[in-house]
């Protein structure tokens, strides 16, 4: 596979300079590394700028409702576990409208990879606060600045025992590509939140702002991502310094293992025209 095999002809509608481009490029490279054909990959998204990404890659795409990227993604994976299922979603899509699915799909632990484009703002609807907008940030709706405590999604994911929790930066494409690859390799629900500057509506968390603060967890040899308490502390770092890299790893059985799904033939491969229910009917005699 080469980058060109994943080239889509659809016109990209993001603002020039948007952090989403970096994510798109990193994801494409990860797919090349994955070595699978486009027909065996499924990208699922909700609605938002981030959620348009699947159109810009040649692979299967299910672009569903705002907030509802995770339910169809896990179900498609359950139906056909030979598909590699990757979700591209926004902070509003995943943590706001879809918050309940975020919580419960970490618990469900189906083998999918979730990439959250975190621009800390609602892009598509033109700049309202999202669940991750920093305190005090002013918008047309939050006219006196945000007063709601930002949602600490990575800490939440760690607390819920998510098997793979990472943070990437859209301007560090190589590192992000590696992280996505690690996420895809992980068996179970993997979460990669990406710092994604929105050049149009987020005037605080800009490229300069992030570049000044980020550092890689891999650079600290003493950091152990298997240590839950250390991971919680790491995930909580913000404002002064912001860690990117793998924050938490927790190897455990996936939904596929625990449900017994992995032992059966994929649901889509079942022949259904001649199912015999006569034995089942006997239970009602």
């Amino acid at each position: 596979m080469e980058i060109n095999d994943f080239k889509s002809n659809d016109e990209i509608t993001w603002c020039p300079g948007c952090g989403d481009f970096g994510i798109l490029n990193a994801l494409k490279k990860s797919l090349v590394n994955l070595g699978k054909e486009p027909k065996d990959i499924l990208l699922v998204s909700g609605i938002g700028q981030a959620a348009k990404l699947p159109h810009y890659i040649k692979s299967n795409c299910f672009n569903g409702l705002h907030g509802r990227s995770l339910p169809p993604a896990i179900a498609a994976k359950i139906a056909n576990r030979n598909l590699s299922v990757i979700v591209t979603t926004g902070d509003g899509d995943c943590y706001g409208e879809g918050g309940n699915h975020f919580i419960h799909n970490i618990r469900r632990n189906v083998d999918i990879t979730v990439i959250v484009h975190n621009n800390q703002i609602y892009g598509l609807t033109k700049g309202q606060a999202s669940p991750t907008t920093d305190l005090g940030y002013k918008t047309k709706v939050q006219v006196n600045g945000v007063i709601l405590e930002p949602m600490h999604a990575l800490e939440m994911a760690i607390a819920l025992g998510c098997g793979f929790v990472a943070r990437g930066y859209s301007a560090n494409s190589e590192h992000l590509c590696w992280l996505i690859g690690e996420g895809i390799k992980h068996k179970g629900f993997s979460l990669i939140e990406v710092l994604q500057p929105c050049v149009t509506y987020n005037k605080k968390n800009t490229y300069e702002w992030y570049t000044k603060r980020i550092y890689k967890t891999e650079d600290d040899a003493s950091y152990n991502p298997n240590d839950k308490i250390a991971a919680l502390q790491k995930a909580a770092e913000w404002e002064e310094r912001i860690p990117i890299g793998v924050i938490y790893r927790n190897e455990k059985d996936s939904y596929e293992d625990k449900s017994g799904l992995a032992k059966n033939i994929p649901l889509v491969d079942e022949e259904i025209e001649n199912i015999d229910i006569s034995e089942a009917l006997k239970e009602f005699i």
């Binding site: 569903g64 339910p71 169809p72 896990i74 598909l83 919580i103 449900s259 649901l267 079942e270």
Partner: peptide, 26 residues
């Protein structure tokens, strides 16, 4: 019968799940 019965976190999840599974061919 190799059927997956998944209790959803809410009905919104339930319907979006069955749409996803159906899109995939089940």
């Amino acid at each position: 019968f190799n059927i997956v019965v998944e209790q959803a976190e809410d009905e919104i999840a339930a319907i979006n799940m069955i749409i996803g599974a159906s899109f995939a061919g089940a």
